[in-house]
């Protein structure tokens, strides 16, 4: 197993932990945290391919990771604001109970 493959295996496992978390929990904040873990795993792939890929002189992987971190920060802020807005109407953060469009 090369080092690049080891990096990719670790990021795949991190992605799957996030996927299991997002699928198995019904608390909205935990689902968001699972999605954040999946985003982090994708960023790790960019850096791994930049470091060990065929043309490491191009900085594309690093730039994409930086932009991706910025967008993930925006996503977390909007997602948690949505959680607070839903909680104000439904008095609950469980996903099954958020089944009305007009609260």
């Amino acid at each position: 197993m090369t080092t690049l493959q080891l990096c990719l295996v670790i990021s795949s496992l991190l992605f799957c932990i996030g996927l299991v978390g997002a699928l198995s929990r019904s608390h909205t904040i935990l689902v968001l945290l699972g999605i954040e873990l999946m985003l982090n795993a994708a960023n790790m792939n960019f850096i791994a391919f930049w470091r060990f890929g065929a043309s490491p002189t191009a900085a594309t992987g690093v730039l994409f990771a930086i932009f991706s971190i910025a967008v993930a920060a925006a996503e977390a802020a909007v997602g948690l604001a949505l959680v607070i807005a839903v909680y104000r109407h439904q008095k609950s953060v469980r996903l099954e109970e958020a089944n009305r469009l007009k609260g």
Partner: peptide, 30 residues
């Protein structure tokens, strides 16, 4: 069911990564 889905995705991804001949560049840090 979440564990089943996650486990099968993990198996798929890891076997794909290990089964692909990935082109690697020079060993020194860019």
């Amino acid at each position: 069911s979440a564990l089943l889905v996650g486990g099968s995705v993990a198996g798929l991804l890891v076997s794909a990564v290990l089964g692909t001949p990935l082109a690697t560049g020079p060993a020194e840090t860019p």
